[in-house]
Amino acid sequence: MTDTRAAVFDVDGTLADTNHLHVTTWWEAFRQAGHDVPMHAVHRAIGLGAEDLIEHLLDPGRDRGADGAISAAHKTLYGTFSDRLPAFREAGRLLRTLAADGWTVVLATSAGGAELAALRRAIDADDAIAATASADDVEEGKPAPDPIRQALELAGGRAAHSVFVGDTVWDMKAGTRAGVTCVGLLCGGIPRGDLTAAGAAAIYDDPADLLAHLADSPFATRPEPRR
């Protein structure tokens, strides 16, 4: 008997090509609220939950009473793209291949509700996804390890036998703190060196590149049988 192998995946920027949609809509939400936040700064913050992203980007001395309106504006602006969110090439096939190979596939994402439903429609691999750990399920989002630990609990997997795939520094930090092997993808726009410094054990261009190299990736490692 072997331990469950959990394949945990971030969604935005990892399985779906949505990071730059988030950048644009967060930038516009900030602009509408009177905040001048450079797009490159927003890009570096993508992967944080909404509250943490706002806290990370805005002056700590601001009136926090307007934060909810900023978050709501972003949600509304981003929602205009919900019927045409693009999945990365081979994203769905990657999840189905891992599931067929015995991995329990779990999503770990700050998305929830209608946004998560739209992302899952874009990926089109619900038959391979065993569970989803969203920001609503934990006290702290990435870079805290809580979302990854929640995903492992849902999968019944041990950290030592599991792999987490993400595209941001926040993903790699969260996975490292949770004790899983971290795989970084470059398709979210974060440089290779930054992902490696944050804990990525292996780097691939995108889901298609990872799928093509599964045989020599961290997913090729088999856990030892329980004694």
Rank of each mutant, 00 (worst) to 15 (best):
G49Q: 05
G49V: 04
A50N: 14
E51Q: 13
E51D: 13
D52E: 14
D52A: 15
L53D: 06
H56P: 02
L57F: 09
L57A: 05
L58A: 02
L58P: 03
D59F: 08
D59S: 11
P60D: 07
P60S: 09
G61D: 13
D63F: 11
R64Q: 14
R64T: 15
R64Y: 14
G65C: 08
A66P: 04
A66V: 15
D67H: 07
I70Q: 01
I70D: 03
S71M: 14
S71I: 14
S71Q: 14
A72L: 11
A72T: 09
A73R: 13
H74K: 15
K75T: 15
T76G: 11
T76W: 11
T76E: 15
L77F: 14
Y78N: 00
G79A: 12
G79P: 02
T80I: 12
S82W: 12
S82T: 12
R84D: 13
R84E: 15
R84P: 08
P86K: 05
R89N: 10
R89M: 01
A91F: 07
A91D: 02
R93Q: 12
L94V: 08
T97E: 15
L98S: 08
L98W: 03
A99D: 10
A99N: 06
A99I: 06
A99H: 12
G102L: 07
G102M: 09
G102F: 02
W103V: 01
W103F: 15
T104W: 05
L107F: 13
A108V: 04
T109E: 06
T109M: 10
T109P: 02
G113W: 14
E115W: 08
A117D: 15
A118S: 13
L119V: 00
R120Q: 12
R121C: 10
R121H: 12
A122Q: 00
I123K: 00
I123R: 02
D124T: 12
D124R: 01
A125S: 01
A125I: 05
A125Q: 08
A125G: 06
D126L: 08
D126C: 07
D126Q: 13
D127T: 05
A128Y: 07
A128V: 13
A130F: 03
T132E: 00
T132S: 11
S134G: 07
D136T: 15
D137W: 03
V138W: 05
E139I: 13
E139S: 14
E140Y: 10
E140T: 13
K142I: 02
P143A: 13
A144H: 12
P145S: 08
D146I: 01
D146P: 02
I148R: 05
I148Q: 00
I148L: 09
I148M: 04
I148N: 07
R149G: 10
Q150S: 00
A151P: 04
A151M: 09
L152H: 02
L152T: 04
L154T: 01
L154K: 11
A155N: 06
A155E: 05
G156F: 12
R158V: 04
R158Y: 07
A159D: 07
G166N: 04
G166Q: 03
D167V: 05
D167E: 09
V169K: 04
V169Q: 10
W170Y: 13
W170A: 11
M172I: 11
K173V: 15
K173Y: 03
A174W: 08
R177M: 10
A178C: 03
A178W: 03
G179C: 09
G179F: 10
G179E: 01
V180N: 05
